[in-house]
Design a protein around this nucleic acid. Structure first.
Lengths: 224, 224
DNA sequence: ATTCATAATTATGGATGCAGTATTATATGG
DNA sequence: CCATATAATACTGCATCCATAATTATGAAT
């Protein structure tokens, strides 16, 4: 192995991957709404590329569940039903619970300080009623736990599930009182980690996720 | 909607899907071994098709984790490390545990009779030391539970994980004594379902999967 | 003989072109 | 005026072709 052949290729990702990422952003931003048809040649022309890499990108997105490919009929952005949410959320709750459990087992003093730092941001953004800041810190808290848990497969599944859930633009944190409740739940989770009670931490994280689902359901019923 | 436009298209799957399925079989049969390079034009020539649908199939397999795509360097069958197995198995144990729990909650008398019928096959094939028969009935038992649980997302994750595990040809059931132990565990799971103790059923299924992992690990150490 | 540089070969990534099927528009009959 | 049949259009799916990067083979120099 010499300097000329970088095995850890920092090479730019393939074109189809770049396109897939662009499309993901468009889907998450609801620039491409659920149910919308993806016009291959229009998109290809848009990006100034041919249909070949674009179609490969669509295959990837289909595997992630973000779009559905109807043979001979084209590609459409996935529409999540309430039933789908009811299927995905409990699974995600279990998986996030497992992360919390595993992380509690493996947490070091360095990790712990980092978690506390992020939690402080949660406290402060919540006090300032800064929803976006809370959302961001919340995301980083869960990411930090995944890193501590150290199970790449588990982390992958959770990331995939989160991508799916992003298809619904609804955000439970915008529900009145939800931030306060979410913060309280986080405090309890952190407390369980502090005393190294892995089962309790797992259980509380699990319930935390389901509590988020319930909030989302309330949001759905008020929004109609 | 008229007879001319079958919305439930029974149309044959796209070529890239057929190819993906063919390749999956080859990978599972270890005709294509972990680490092996997939020669695009050779395979395309083999199937008598062009490289385009073949490459689309490879994207799908990559998303499933069965192959890895190295930019500008080609496509290789995924090699699972022991670490990967240690990551995947606990997750699968959790998921299968959730299936058992959910199925216990929803099982009907009809379901129950079906489960018992399959379990009887387990008993008989085990008594006859029919490993392949036991393997098959075992598969159908788990599938039946997934159907009863009725969570499509959960079922999908488990199927994906099982595909990954098929990359290792090792089969814990071939380990001496494993069938007897597996059968005993199944009996306990069934008993928990019978008394509708969902938590116990989930716990026992979880442990059953981990017991399978342990057997696999023993197999790995004896095989070297 | 071994190592490095250079040339030839080969494979991947992407673009273009074409056939077949879905969809839409048009026309004809009731 | 509406429904059905037919024609026109448009898009998907696949094949072929080309450019570029990677690998291998060849040759020269130490």
């Amino acid at each position: 192995m010499n300097a000329r052949t970088p095995t850890l290729s920092l090479a730019q990702p393939a074109l189809y991957e770049q396109v897939a990422e662009q499309l993901r952003s468009k889907i998450f931003a609801h620039e491409l709404k659920p149910g919308a048809w993806l016009d291959e040649q229009a998109l290809a022309a848009d990006y100034g590329i041919s249909r070949t890499p674009l179609r490969e990108a669509l295959k990837v997105l289909a595997a992630e569940g973000l779009v559905v490919l109807k043979p001979r009929r084209g590609c459409y952005v996935t529409e999540l039903s309430e039933q789908d949410l009811d299927d995905v959320f409990p699974v995600m709750a279990i998986l996030e619970g497992m992360v919390a459990q595993e992380a509690t087992r493996r947490v070091t003093s360095t990790n712990w300080r980092n978690l506390c730092a992020i939690h402080n941001e949660l406290e402060q953004t919540a006090a300032a009623n800064n929803v976006d800041g809370f959302f961001d810190a919340n995301q980083r808290f869960h990411t930090a736990l995944k890193d501590i848990a150290g199970n790449r497969y588990l982390a992958q599944l959770i990331d995939d599930a989160r991508k799916l859930l992003k298809l619904t633009r609804r955000d439970s944190l915008r529900l009145s009182g939800r931030i306060t409740q979410s913060l309280a739940e986080h405090r309890e989770i952190l407390a369980a980690i502090e005393v190294r009670d892995e089962n309790l931490a797992g259980q509380r994280m699990h319930d935390h996720l389901l509590s988020g689902r319930a909030a989302l359901a309330r949001l759905a019923s008020t929004n109609r």
